[in-house]
Amino acid sequence: MQSVKSMQPLKYGQTDLVYRKGFFAFLCGAVLMGVLLGTIAYCCSNADFLYKLSLTQSDFIKSRAEMDHSQILTGSLTGTTIFLAAAFLCGLCPLGQPAELALLVFRGMGIGLTLSQLYGTYGRSSVPYAMGLILPGAVISTLAVVIAVREAMSLSGVYLGISLSDRAENGLAETVKLYGTKFMVLEAALAAAAGADCLCSYLFIGHFG
């Protein structure tokens, strides 16, 4: 006879590894590792590649300056929603944990590479403006993605446990519904991050000459 505990959605989260103290810091550390890797990748690139990157970054600043607020908002939200959607789909896979963790590293690499490009293209004096332009929206959206990955890892663990068990599980439908609701809330957080990105572009884009 099945226990009542297995029939209640997300009760596994109370003892699940991903909800234990320190695991959130581990996930944030994966992002920081990605930032470091992105910075190292930029520093180790050859001169020709760096030149091409500088042209790309210059076009990014120029295009940002020419965009209206709705275009910036839509572009920023679309870019971060891709990570959220990827985490959501990985969470439905019993062996999705490695891919979920890789999402965080890849997200960090993008941030590190972007900041390094801005520094290499516009010099040391641009660092405060680059941080003001990139970091507020990036921090909010990255925290949302970290939470999404934590939830995805938890659900992947549930699916893995079901796959390795010969027992039928009740309450899985409710668990998945709650999982989807959490991701809808995280999408709202990404919308707020996109709004911050739009505001920061308005405040700081004019400082890049």
Rank of each mutant, 00 (worst) to 15 (best):
S156D: 08
A173T: 09
L172H: 02
T74F: 14
F88W: 08
E66G: 03
Q57W: 13
F88L: 14
A102V: 13
K11V: 07
P136L: 05
L199V: 12
P128E: 08
M131W: 12
V149N: 02
F106M: 15
A152R: 00
V35D: 01
G38F: 10
V145G: 00
I162S: 01
F23E: 00
K11L: 13
L89Y: 03
M109C: 10
R107E: 02
S76F: 11
Q8E: 11
H69S: 14
H69I: 15
S125P: 00
Q117R: 03
G22C: 14
L95R: 09
G34S: 08
S201A: 15
M7C: 11
L36F: 13
A87N: 02
G22F: 06
Q117N: 08
P9Y: 01
Y202S: 14
G38C: 06
A191I: 05
L95S: 10
D16G: 04
L186E: 00
A41Q: 10
A196V: 14
A148V: 05
A87T: 06
G120I: 05
S141R: 00
F26A: 12
L133Q: 03
A86N: 05
Y12M: 05
M67K: 07
L36R: 06
M7H: 12
T39I: 08
L203P: 03
L92Y: 10
L178P: 00
Y129L: 06
M109G: 04
S126G: 08
L92E: 07
S76G: 07
S126H: 06
E151Y: 06
G38D: 09
G195F: 04
V127S: 13
A138M: 04
A196M: 14
T175A: 02
T114P: 02
A47Y: 13
K52F: 13
Y51K: 09
L10D: 06
L89V: 11
Q57K: 11
V35Y: 09
V31T: 11
A86E: 04
A138I: 04
R20N: 07
S126C: 08
E151L: 15
P94G: 08
G29Y: 13
L203D: 11
S141L: 00
I111R: 00
V146F: 12
A138H: 00
V149T: 11
Y51N: 09
I147A: 13
L95A: 12
V145M: 12
N170K: 06
G157K: 00
D166A: 07
I82W: 11
I205K: 05
L133K: 01
I162F: 01
L50S: 11
A102D: 05
M153C: 12
L135S: 06
Y202Q: 14
S45V: 02
C44M: 15
E169H: 12
G110H: 11
T78F: 09
I40D: 07
V185C: 05
I82Q: 07
E187D: 03
K11F: 05
N46H: 15
Y119K: 09
I140S: 02
T80D: 15
V35R: 00
S154W: 00
R107H: 06
F83Y: 13
V105C: 14
T74W: 08
S154G: 07
A86T: 07
L178I: 10
P136H: 07
I205F: 01
D166M: 10
T15P: 00
A41S: 15
L113E: 04
A138E: 01
P98K: 08
A196T: 07
M67P: 01
